[in-house]
Design a binder for these strands. Structure first.
Lengths: 206, 206
DNA sequence: GTCGTGCCGGACACCATGTCCGGACATCAT
DNA sequence: ATGATGTCCGGACATGGTGTCCGGCACGAC
C-alpha cells in the first residue's frame, strides 16, 4: 500500500516516468539481468532521484509489468492475425515477423520470462498469454483434423503445449543468442518442424 | 570468501548438511520458489541454526549447485545412452524415461532453470548441459543425413536447437503441470513431432 | 504574488545476508 | 575419568537494499 499521492495531472508529468522506463530498457538490452538491477541503479541511469522512482512505481515488479504491457501491445497485433491453413511458407513468414518484433524487445522479454519463474504476478501474467496461445492452437488443430488435413490420432492438447511452450523457448533463445540474419532460416526450420511434425504429420499406419 | 574452518572430519559430520539438502528439496516440492526461500526458512525447516547453514554452504547458490549436481548424475545416465536410429517408438520410450527421472526432481529442476535465468554460475552450469545435448543432436542429425535417412536440406544447427531447447521447456512444463499418467501420451506426441518434423521430415519437393 | 504539483535529497525503519565467536555437548582415545 | 576434537547452537554485528516519509525547491498557472 504505497502513498501515491502525486499521480494526477501529468501537465509536464510523464517526464520522469518515461525516463525510468527508457533507462530500464537500456540497462536490460545492455546485458543486465532484471533481478540484479537495483532501484538506485535504475534511478541513476534515468537521472532521477530514488524517491521519484517510488512515486511512479510501487516496486520493481510494477515497473516490469508496465514495460511488459507495452511490449505485448505490439506483439499481439501479429499473433491475432494468425490464420492456420496458409501452408509451411505462410507459417515461416509468421514466425519471421514474430522474431522481428521480439528482437525489438529482447531485453524486456527476457526480463519477463526471468521474473515469471519466481514472481507470482508476472508468472500469472505471462502464463495467461501462453495459455491463450495454447487454446488457440488446440482449436486450429481440431479444425484441421475435422477437415481431414491433420491425422486424427494427434494428441491435440499435448501437441499444442509442445508447439507453444517449446516454440516460445526456442524462439526466445534464438533471438537472444543469434544474429538477425539467421532469423529467416530459423523461422523456416521451426515452421517445417511444426508443419511436418504436427499439422501434416503422416497418419499412423497400423 | 567464507570462513569454512570446520569442514573436516564428518565423523558424525554430514548430519546437518544432509538435513539442509533434504529440507530444501522438501520446501521446493512443497511449492516454494527457490528465490523466495530465505536462509532462515531453510535452516528452520532443517532444524538447524542459521549459522550452521553457512558452515556448510557459502550461500544459496552453492546449495543449489550441490542439489543440482546430484540430480544431474541420475539424469545423464539415461541421456548418455541416447541412440538415434531406434525409430519413433524408441524415441518415445527414451522421453518417457527422462520424464520419469525428472518427476523425481521437479523441485530442484525448476529451481535450477529459475535461477539460471539471472545467476551467472547456475546459468553457465545449466547452459553447458544444454549445449552438450545440442552438439550431440547435431552429430546425430548429420549422420542421419549422410545415411540418407534425413533430408539433406535440414538446417541441422537450428533444428537441434529447436529440439533441445524446445523439448526441455515442453517436458519441464509437462512434468510440473500434468499428472504422471499422461506422461506416456506426452512422450509419444513429442517423439512423433521430432521424428516426422525433423528426423523423417519429407524432403522439399522443388 | 501564491497556489499546485513534480521532483530532489535525505532520514528512517526494516529485513535478509554473510561473518564471527563463545560456549554447550557429544564422541573417542588414553 | 579426563581431555582433545569437532559439530552445532545462539546470538552479536556490519552491511546493503527496500520501501516510507517529509521538508524544501523550482516552475507553470491563475
Amino acid at each position: 500500500m504505497p502513498s501515491i499521492t502525486r499521480r494526477r495531472t501529468p501537465a509536464t508529468g510523464r517526464r520522469a516516468e518515461d525516463d525510468i522506463l527508457a533507462a530500464t530498457r537500456r540497462l536490460l538490452t545492455g546485458g543486465a539481468t532484471f533481478t540484479e538491477l537495483g532501484i538506485q541503479q535504475i534511478s541513476d541511469e534515468a537521472g532521477v532521484a530514488r524517491s521519484t522512482f517510488y512515486s511512479h512505481f510501487r516496486d520493481k515488479t510494477e515497473l516490469l509489468m508496465r514495460l511488459a504491457a507495452r511490449m505485448v501491445e505490439a506483439s499481439f497485433s501479429i499473433a491475432s492475425a494468425w490464420e492456420p491453413a496458409v501452408g509451411v511458407d505462410g507459417l515461416a513468414a509468421d514466425f519471421l515477423r514474430v522474431l522481428g518484433v521480439w528482437r525489438e524487445h529482447v531485453g524486456v522479454l527476457q526480463a519477463v520470462t526471468e521474473v515469471a519463474a519466481y514472481e507470482p504476478t508476472v508468472r500469472e501474467f505471462w502464463g495467461q498469454g501462453l495459455v491463450q496461445f495454447v487454446d488457440r492452437t488446440i482449436e486450429v488443430l481440431r479444425a484441421e483434423q475435422d477437415a481431414g488435413r491433420s491425422p486424427a490420432d494427434i494428441d491435440v492438447v499435448h501437441a499444442s503445449e509442445i508447439i507453444v511452450l517449446g516454440g516460445e523457448r526456442a524462439m526466445l533463445h534464438h533471438v537472444a543468442n543469434s544474429a538477425p540474419d539467421t532469423d529467416a532460416a530459423f523461422a523456416r526450420e521451426l515452421a517445417r518442424t511444426w508443419w511436418y511434425g504436427v499439422y501434416r504429420r503422416p497418419a499412423t499406419e497400423n
